[in-house]
């Protein structure tokens, strides 16, 4: 099973979080991800973070968890419930891991800018922003497998309505009040950095190392601070 690298980075940072103790070590995360190859991919492929429990239970040595240790996420899996919102106890570790992962990418971007590798730096900046989006999607039980999921997540965060299809996306975005578009604006601007690099107009459009970093950090901050009701 191919998992986008940002989700992999977030998952690999979970064991550092006290309340994610059940996973164990970073090596254990790798084992879980490997085990996902044999898991029910049809059900979980769009939900890599939510699928972590699936992989964990699929390892050769699944955790011997007592009722008090079993987060809702595991109960859902064990009860064969389709992907849904992460249990309350798992949200904070996920969001903390997202911040760690984001900082890792921002640091990588700084290094790559210093080396003059603008393309890699732009990828790092967008990966940081993607981490924020992925985390928000995961805790809500929304798909977070690719960029199309991400843009739906952003609209869902801004409006409370996760578009089910393209027709619904059009209707929601066209009817969203102006004051609710800040998240979409920040995300759109941040993803534009990478598009500008990939298509060769980064400098021509007036981007600099500093402005690109500011845009990505602005988007990351807005998205990670997004509260609102979660299911």
């Amino acid at each position: 099973m191919k998992i986008r690298h940002e989700a992999h980075t977030i998952m690999s940072m979970l064991p550092d979080r006290q309340r994610a103790f059940i996973i164990g070590s970073p090596e254990r995360v790798s084992e879980c991800i490997q085990a996902l190859s044999d898991a029910d991919i049809e059900v979980w492929h769009a939900y890599p973070i939510n699928a972590l429990a699936t992989g964990l239970m699929g390892t050769s040595n699944p955790p011997d968890v007592g009722p008090a240790q079993i987060p809702e996420l595991f109960l859902n899996y064990l009860a064969d419930i389709p992907p849904g919102p992460l249990a309350q106890g798992w949200r904070q570790p996920i969001l903390e891991a997202v911040k760690d992962a984001g900082e890792r990418y921002f640091n990588a971007a700084d290094r790559n800018f210093q080396l003059g590798d603008v393309r890699s730096a732009a990828h790092d900046l967008c990966s940081a922003v993607n981490c924020a989006v992925i985390g928000q999607a995961a805790i809500r039980g929304w798909p977070h497998a690719d960029a199309s999921n991400d843009i739906n997540t952003m609209l869902g965060l801004a409006t409370g309505i996760l578009p089910a299809d393209q027709t619904q996306f059009r209707a929601v975005i066209d009817n969203t009040a102006e004051e609710n578009l800040d998240l979409n604006s920040a995300y759109g601007a941040a993803t534009g950095i990478l598009q500008a690099v990939d298509h060769g107009y980064f400098h021509a459009f007036g981007y600099t190392t500093e402005t690109a970093t500011q845009l990505a950090r602005h988007a990351f901050g807005l998205i990670t601070q997004t509260g609102g009701p979660t299911p």
Partner: peptide, 19 residues
Amino acid sequence: GHFYHGHLSESDLRSCRRI
């Protein structure tokens, strides 16, 4: 940029248009 490269997905295009 989309005028030159046609790189925006339908959703991205729609979102950028609204913004």
